[in-house]
């Protein structure tokens, strides 16, 4: 139940995200017989038991440490076995708000991929909503199904292996929202239309990296009677905080003088050292600044949204 409920103390069998650095995290199922070895040292699972989540734990041989983090869908996106391209937090967050998910929502997702987004969806619609997710790759469907069971999500999520573009979703008049992450979402839109709960408003989001896909998706949404067709792009940029020294022109002059002094000293080595050269050596004031990374994510996918209109009695 760790994805749906927080725990304070780590126990046998719990899922812990071992955080070694921002780029290096590993999911561990606590098993007191096991030991986790990495370049920072040896960590015995049994040492984790009884500790609070969030503890900074030193290794057994004192070489380093790691943080024992509580699993969240956000951390899971970092450690998920990358079976497919996954969604990132900017897209995940915006989609969930835009398609109006909350506890109790019933939502359809296709394809499931690595199940990373499914974790975020399940988190938001719990405890009384439901996620129907479809994956046409059989091995992947099996793997995520097992994973949802391990993470206590199987009551919330129904996984089905199915080629939705060919065979539809097999569900009608049920869902409040639809998310399509497919190579050709337009092939699934008319089936998605049937899956919507027919007497209420609904939202659909199609996730495609190419503008040509967006164009075809929009045309299909329009043909199928969806309205309010809108498209967005959402990205996150980091700003790293650091300090820089702020030197002045006087420092620049001084630097030259110091160099000249050194040269002169080399010339007349016999001459006595005077303290002139070092007298003005002072640390400059520091300034807190931020810097954006040299390289960052420039594109994930286009998010095409549309609204499903409730069917009128005379239709």
């Amino acid at each position: 139940m760790s994805f749906l409920r927080y725990k304070t103390i780590i126990e046998e069998g719990d899922l812990v995200i071992a955080h070694l650095s921002r780029e290096n995290m590993t999911p561990l199922i606590v098993d007191s017989r096991k030991t986790y070895n990495n370049k920072f040292g040896t960590f015995k699972h049994k040492d984790m038991i009884g500790k609070e989540y969030g503890t900074k734990m030193p290794s057994h041989n004192g070489r380093g440490f790691m943080y024992l983090l509580h699993p969240t869908p956000e951390l899971w996106t970092h450690v998920v076995p990358h079976r497919t391209q996954i969604l990132y937090v900017a897209d995940i967050s915006y989609i969930i708000t835009y398609i109006d998910l909350k506890p109790g929502s019933v939502v359809l997702e296709s394809g499931t991929g690595s199940g990373s987004f499914s974790h975020s969806l399940a988190r938001t619609i719990a405890p009384n909503g439901h996620l129907y997710t479809f994956e046409f790759h059989e091995e992947r469907a099996k793997a995520v199904k097992k994973e949802f069971e391990e993470h206590g999500l199987s009551d919330l999520i129904t996984v089905e292996c199915r080629d939705v573009c060919k065979d539809g979703f097999g569900i009608t008049n049920i869902v409040h929202a639809v998310f399509l992450d497919l190579p050709a979402p337009w092939e699934a839109i008319s089936a998605a239309k049937e899956a919507f709960k027919q007497n209420r408003i609904g939202k659909i989001c199609c996730f495609s990296p190419c503008i040509e896909q967006v164009q075809r998706t929009c045309a299909s949404l329009n043909e199928n009677g969806f309205v309010e067709i809108k498209m967005y792009e959402c990205l996150i940029r980091e700003h790293d905080v650091k300090t820089i020294p702020v030197y002045t022109v006087a420092d620049a002059v001084n630097k030259i003088k110091v160099q000249q002094d050194k040269k002169r000293k080399r010339k007349d080595q016999n001459e006595q050292d005077d303290d002139n050269s070092s007298k003005s050596k002072q640390d400059p004031p520091n300034l807190y600044v931020t810097k954006t990374p040299n390289e960052t994510k420039g594109h994930t996918s286009y998010l095409t949204f549309a609204t499903f209109l409730p069917v009128l009695d005379d239709e």
Partner: peptide, 22 residues
């Protein structure tokens, strides 16, 4: 752990047939 400043960037596109642009 990992204090980090981030900024979100959002861009809407016009999606008319043959006329897609931000």
């Amino acid at each position: 752990l990992n204090p980090q400043i981030t900024e979100s960037w959002l861009r809407q596109y016009q999606v008319l047939p043959g006329r897609i642009h931000p």
